[in-house]
């Protein structure tokens, strides 16, 4: 991330005018938070974690945050295979359990957010989808996530609850893949998370449905046992759990988790 350097440059020029952009007389990284923090986070956390990463780097000028965003199960596999990660934020407790069972989680994971499935439709809703039942209508092309990834599990739970059986045209490898098919207008609907629709609002509308309540997903976060930078890792997790972190996640469309 080049953000830190850019910020430092910005502060440098600002210092000429106003003394007191960064605490220049303070020894940098006094709290021991320095170096690189590598955060493996679910694809759906991309936007909110980018914001938090920038704020983290501003608060700790000696620290840099690097993100690896992918499907949670792929990330879990990478971590159990020894990828050098400091923090894991998963879109489902299942993948966190996989990592914890491998002895890779230090302490207890915290739930930082909850995400609710919605039906994403192309702008203008050409398939006139108003609820889950419409997805089974003939001629309505639907993209779901594969059942191996969390958004696929959530979709199956929601559909089963609604008693709807349908044949999707594709089972996507992750939620962004499903959303991309909606954005391009290749499908009339896809089951994704509420947070995925926000950044795509220019091309995509969200249709909420009552059965979503049973398929709400918890997002746990944890510092990893083999974290190369545990101090900074804990500081990042603290930021995500702070009121500021909650506000950023809420702005991205996540629902608040219970305190804890």
């Amino acid at each position: 991330m080049r953000i830190r350097r850019a910020l430092a440059a910005l502060c440098g020029s600002a210092l000429l005018a106003v003394a007191g952009c960064a605490p220049a007389d303070e020894p940098a990284g006094r709290d021991g938070v320095a170096g690189t923090v590598t955060v493996f986070a679910a694809a759906s956390l991309t936007e909110s974690f980018r914001t938090l990463g920038r704020e983290f780097e501003a608060a700790h000028p000696d620290a840099t945050v690097t993100f690896n965003h992918a499907g949670s199960s792929a990330l879990a596999a990478q971590i159990t295979q020894g990828a050098p990660a400091d923090v894991f934020a998963s879109a489902s407790p299942v993948n966190m359990t996989t990592v914890a069972d491998a002895g890779a989680v230090a302490g207890t994971p915290y739930v930082i957010a909850r995400n609710q499935p919605v039906i994403a439709v192309p702008k203008g809703n050409p398939g006139r989808v108003a609820g889950l039942a419409d997805l089974a209508r003939p001629g309505v092309k639907v993209a779901l996530c594969a059942e191996q990834v969390p958004c696929g599990t959530a979709a199956r739970t929601a559909l089963a609850t609604a008693g709807v059986t349908l044949t999707p045209v594709t089972l996507e490898q992750d939620v962004k893949g499903a959303l991309a098919k909606v954005r391009l207008g290749e499908v009339d609907a896809a089951l994704v998370y509420r947070t995925d629709v926000r950044p795509a609002a220019a091309d995509v509308d969200a249709v909420e449905f009552p059965e979503a309540a049973v398929a709400v997903n918890d997002y746990p976060i944890a510092v990893l046992t083999d974290a190369p930078n545990p101090v900074a890792a804990r500081a990042f997790v603290e930021l995500v759990r702070s009121d500021r972190g909650r506000a950023v996640l809420a702005a991205a469309g996540f629902q608040q988790s219970g305190r804890g």
Partner: peptide
């Protein structure tokens, strides 16, 4: 996977099956 998607028997080729099994 981008153009044809992933559906068993129709568009799920071995590399796609491998990727999803990896999950």
């Amino acid at each position: 996977i981008t153009f044809a998607g992933n559906y068993p028997g129709r568009t799920q080729t071995m590399p796609l099956a491998v990727y999803l099994a990896l999950e």
